[in-house]
């Protein structure tokens, strides 16, 4: 992909688009992926608050969580912190 030349870049290195790192997928870093057992999940949200990457998605409507594998780096904090062992780490 060809990159923008200096004449057309925004000035001073500012990044005008907030939250643009969503375009950068960190899911490729992962060696193990967290898998959620919905039957065990109590929607306590500890995995959601402790995820360093905001990769645990929370759905209030049906009280469910899911892992966003586009960004999950596979650290395993969610599995480690889950009080009911509803998340297990599975090799990719």
């Amino acid at each position: 992909m060809s990159k923008t030349g200096w004449r057309n870049l925004p000035i001073a290195g500012i990044i005008p688009k907030a939250g643009s790192s969503l375009e950068y997928k960190t899911g490729t870093w992962r060696a193990f992926k967290p898998v959620v057992d919905e039957s065990k999940c109590t929607f306590c949200l500890l995995c959601w608050i402790y995820c360093p990457d905001g990769a645990v998605k929370r759905f209030n409507s049906n009280k469910k969580i899911s892992i966003d594998y586009d960004y999950c780096k596979g650290c395993g904090i969610c599995a480690s912190e889950c009080p009911v062992k509803a998340i297990s780490m599975v090799e990719e």
Partner: peptide
């Protein structure tokens, strides 16, 4: 990949 361009711009 970008630093050089900003110096040129400056």
């Amino acid at each position: 990949d970008y630093y050089f361009e900003f110096k040129r711009q400056q």
